[in-house]
Design a protein around this nucleic acid. Structure first.
Lengths: 239, 239
DNA sequence: CCCCAGAGGAATGGGGATCAGACCTTTTCG
DNA sequence: CGAAAAGGTCTGATCCCCATTCCTCTGGGG
């Protein structure tokens, strides 16, 4: 019958170890700026309980992040583990991610479309203040892509939080993490960012008047924009 | 700052063992009817290689599915492992699934909306024959929910395959699995199924003329239908 | 009729990941 | 000065997963 289906059902099973998952979680949160530089993580004995893992396992992840320069640890009372102020340069995207960049965009489309619809349906217009502030912050950061991108991520995550769906929030952070790996190394002229941010503003207006259909239109346009940028700069499916 | 965000970043890490993942994969594929009754699975020595796991691990999953009645094994030459002809009755949904049913619906909305848009954008109208056949099959099965549902699942998975995105296909099967657990135990009058299937037909028409916006409207309506049914029959958020 | 190929079933030992817990070292606050 | 709070270290037990081998059943070809 369907080779695609069999390929899905019988595809290799990837068992993610607790260590890997923890490393991934903290790593993306830091790289995305969700954990701002200088932030202090909960104490190890506390954090391992939140994660539901043993402290030794947690420490493997923390040690790795310290050695890669994303965290630094301070001993003694009043110490702790802190997000590094000078983040290490991002590594170039892995080959497998590059090969599947269109798939990542497709997943992003699904997640963000769902977020747009549900946020428009459910969000309390009075709760959009912080979102609006982020749009203005982005407007002030058109020349500094790193700062712009941090606000961008917060914007999309905050929008996801408005849906009240935990799965959509975590799906958003995941997909933003993948996108970050892809776009971090390509040029972002201020004009492009300005255009992109204008769509943020329009999107917010749609959410404010509970217009889900319009939100979908704006979001679709927004995502296709970055997709076209990627299509031009990344290797073709064949390469 | 944001409690929701911290709850997402520091949420418990669930490390899925290879055994669990395999059991889940095969189990949902069987329950969804993607592996039809009577189907013969690949030989164990072959299957464990496809999954990328050891045979003993694979056998744990197979043994569990045999004992639960979803599979039966035949020894000797020409034997094999077959999907049971008389599937065991589905267990009632777990409490945690019930508690998060709205979250499941939200995730489904995202996945199916993404599928609708991308299928409408990319699908070759000439490749819609099988989809159309499934709509007609559902039309003939309005009185038999089990049969209807099998075709329904195939329809949504086939639609996802049209997008060409592996992630969306697997997301679709996952979310359909969760939906199956939720809706299997509630009543489905033929009128409701007919109404639902009419939306399938309309959706297909949208895809055929590459009308993504209309596809979104129809799909949204389609999903809200089942969501309202669930809202009436499942416990409220508080319970 | 015999025997072997092809299938599931079972047992072994090793290696790595994870856990739980105790203990050490550094630092600051009372 | 000493207790408290934090990271850093170590150890033994346990569980999961792997690789390998061998066993058992059964149908088909010679």
């Amino acid at each position: 019958m369907s080779g695609v289906l069999d390929a899905t059902v019988f595809a290799p099973v990837r068992s993610t170890s607790a260590f890997e998952e923890t490393l991934e979680r903290l790593g993306t949160a830091i790289k995305l700026g969700l954990l701002a530089p200088g932030t202090r993580l909960p104490a190890e004995r506390e954090l391992c309980e939140q994660f539901g893992i043993a402290r030794s396992t947690l420490r493997q992840a923390l040690t790795a992040l310290v050695q890669s320069g994303h965290l630094h640890a301070v001993r003694g009372r009043g110490g702790g583990t802190f997000v590094a102020d000078a983040p290490p340069p991002a590594e170039p995207p892995s080959d497998e991610l590059l090969a599947g960049w269109r798939d990542v965009c497709d997943q992003r489309l699904a997640v963000e479309l769902g977020v747009a619809v549900l946020a428009a349906e459910r969000a309390d217009p009075k709760a959009l203040g912080p979102l609006d502030a982020l749009v203005h912050e982005m407007q002030d950061r058109l020349e500094d892509f790193t700062a712009y991108r941090r606000a961008d991520v917060r914007f999309h995550v905050a929008l996801a939080e408005l849906t009240g769906s935990p799965r959509l929030v975590s799906a958003t952070t995941e997909v933003q993490g993948a996108m970050g790996d892809l776009i971090h190394h390509i040029a972002h002229p201020p004009e492009v960012l300005a255009w992109s941010n204008a769509q943020h503003a329009r999107l917010l207006a749609c959410v404010e008047r509970h217009d889900a259909h319009a939100a979908v239109r704006v979001m679709t346009e927004h995502l296709h924009g970055t997709e076209h940028v990627l299509a031009g700069l990344l290797p073709s499916p064949g390469a």
